[in-house]
Design a protein around this nucleic acid. Structure first.
Lengths: 220, 220
DNA sequence: CCTCAGAATGAATGGTCGTTCATTCTTGAT
DNA sequence: ATCAAGAATGAACGACCATTCATTCTGAGG
């Protein structure tokens, strides 16, 4: 459990140095954000303390307030990082020019949204920890909705293209995009809260079924 | 500042009764759970304190530890209450014998899930506040998954009935039920986090579109 | 080799939290 | 009217939190 006690040592004798290291500000900030993500995933947002985060990062307590002005700020920046990572990943796929086939592009998006990178417990925990507080904290709402809006627009545009290409009548790209995004969110939630009853494999199959019913000519 | 010393007295000793009231244990417990729900919705789970909850309930600090043994226990019981309220509402609709038409029953379910009672910000906030911590707290996972499982089974059975009645080929009730539940969860999330971009009206239309694509003969 | 700007440290601080329990008060039975 | 049972109170306590800042240490530039 507690490898902090020293049971698990750094292997390389070089890096093991307890000598204090001076590193550029940007690097330390990222180091602390990464540690914060791990702490939220392991202990829950409400149990995260500055001591916890800084010791997880292998640094001293004071450093968090040196690079971020406060705990509040650290948490805000951590949310911003996770949100932007997720949404920029989506947008990259939707804007990328390597994939020309629309069906294949949709598949790539689904792979990203329910693939290894995103559905790691760590990231999902952070994601929903903030969602849980969003109702009471407008700041969180703003951070999420800002990046969300752009991705939603891009998804809607992709769907519109597919609808045109497939001649799908009475299919509204706006509603379909909203439904698909909600479905993915809900599946993430299921993977987090009831992992016993929902495997990643099945989550992907469920999402794919949604797309197949909407765009039968493009999916499978 | 120091009105505790007695400088500010009750004005009208008769009507302004701050007289302490003795009530049965069950009533006090519910009173505290209700107050907890309001506090979580307003301040976020991580900001909730015992003082906050008890003063919201109009009672003294000590009372929470009298009726629940600890804060942890109060929070657990609050989650259990909200979870059971939501799921028993669903099950009542799915088991009820007043509605015989399967399409109408589906509509009633959707009305409940995205209607006034459930999508009040208060309830949604509580819901997702706990989901956010669920990754780190197995107790929460257990509470949710226990009630969830029963509702999921009932939904699956309803879907199976509809599929049989409508002769919907290659429609898997299990996958459809998972997808529908995830969609509803995702829509709740959207209503909570980005209420500006998703109205209740549109959320219902999106969910209805899902059901229509799956069961075209039953919905609309 | 020396210097010093500023990165890193961690003991100390003040504030807030959950919890306790001696005391007060209410109610129903006597 | 009296009393006992126990519900309700809130001041007090100890623990732990975020934040500060005097001090130590580092490494690039001279």
């Amino acid at each position: 459990m507690s490898d902090a006690s020293g049971t698990v040592r750094e292997v390389s004798p070089d890096t093991r140095s307890k000598r204090r290291q001076i590193r550029p500000k940007a690097e330390r900030r990222q180091q602390l954000i990464d540690a914060t993500i791990r702490c939220i995933a392991q202990h829950g947002l409400s149990a995260v303390t500055m001591q916890m985060v800084t010791s997880e990062a292998g640094l001293s307590v004071g450093i968090a307030n040196l690079h971020f002005e406060s705990k509040d700020n650290l948490l805000r920046e951590t949310l911003r990082f996770v949100a932007e990572e997720y949404h920029s990943g989506q947008i990259e796929i939707m804007e990328g020019s390597e994939i020309t086939d629309l069906g294949a592009r949709l598949d790539a998006l689904l792979d990203f949204q329910l693939g290894r990178g995103v559905t790691q417990r760590q990231k999902m925990s952070v994601w929903f920890a903030y969602y849980g507080e969003a109702g009471a904290r407008p700041v969180y709402q703003k951070i999420v909705s800002t990046v969300d809006r752009l991705a939603a627009r891009k998804l809607e545009a992709l769907f519109a293209e597919i609808i045109r290409e497939g001649q799908y009548l009475d299919a509204d790209p706006h509603d379909l995009a909203t439904g698909y995004s909600a479905l993915i969110d809900g599946l993430h939630l299921g993977l987090l809260v009831t992992p016993r009853e929902l495997s990643k494999r099945r989550a992907r199959s469920v999402a794919r079924a949604f797309l197949r019913r909407a765009f039968p000519h493009h999916i499978r």
